[in-house]
């Protein structure tokens, strides 16, 4: 008679959540400009949603009022960069291979560089919170292509979308 192969007990959910949340927080809170715009990121499993809480300083057209097109561009680019970095960090994070002491350094070291970013403005950004989700369409060793969608009240009524190309960091050495 053979004994069943030993499978390690799954980690407690708190341990997994803490590891994921601290990694995401290192990624989001390490960048001053993200804090300047007030962007937050919510996580459900591996799915990220970037949130831009409305603030007066984001206004580009005081008559309407509407969110500045540049803010929309920055919000979508930030959502794309965070998603791309997050996807790249995932495997090492889950394996517990990220040094918790230098989490911020590690997260910043993995930030891709934007090559180009192309934004479609579909309707004007209203004076209320905005949300964005990015999807890594293709990620190679050197280059990546990411698509982002942003909405306000209704998920299906996008107010902007964008595609960006990114240069992946050379992590060797």
């Amino acid at each position: 008679m053979t004994t069943a192969p030993k499978r390690p007990r799954p980690e407690p959910v708190e341990v997994i959540k803490h590891r994921r949340d601290s990694t995401l927080s290192a990624l989001v809170n390490g960048v001053p400009y993200i804090s300047f715009l007030g962007i937050e990121v919510e996580r459900h499993g591996d799915e990220l949603t970037a949130i831009l809480p409305f603030a007066d300083k984001l206004i580009g057209n005081p008559m309407l009022p509407a969110i500045h097109g540049g803010v929309t561009a920055a919000f979508l680019e930030t959502a794309a960069v965070i998603e791309l970095t997050w996807v790249g960090l995932w495997a090492d994070m889950e394996a517990g291979a990220l040094d918790q002491t230098y989490l911020q350094d590690e997260a910043l070291r993995r930030l891709p560089k934007t090559i180009d970013f192309s934004i479609d403005y579909l309707r004007s950004g209203l004076p209320r919170d905005a949300y964005a989700r990015a999807r890594v369409v293709r990620s190679g060793r050197r280059y990546a292509s990411v698509h982002v969608e942003a909405w306000q009240d209704n998920r299906t009524k996008l107010f902007a979308q964008a595609t960006g190309h990114f240069l992946m960091p050379n992590l060797a050495g």
Partner: peptide
Amino acid sequence: DRFVGDPRTGVIHGGAVSA
């Protein structure tokens, strides 16, 4: 300093340039 995208280098975030 508030517009920095990479605190290791101090380079301005692309989003600020976009704006």
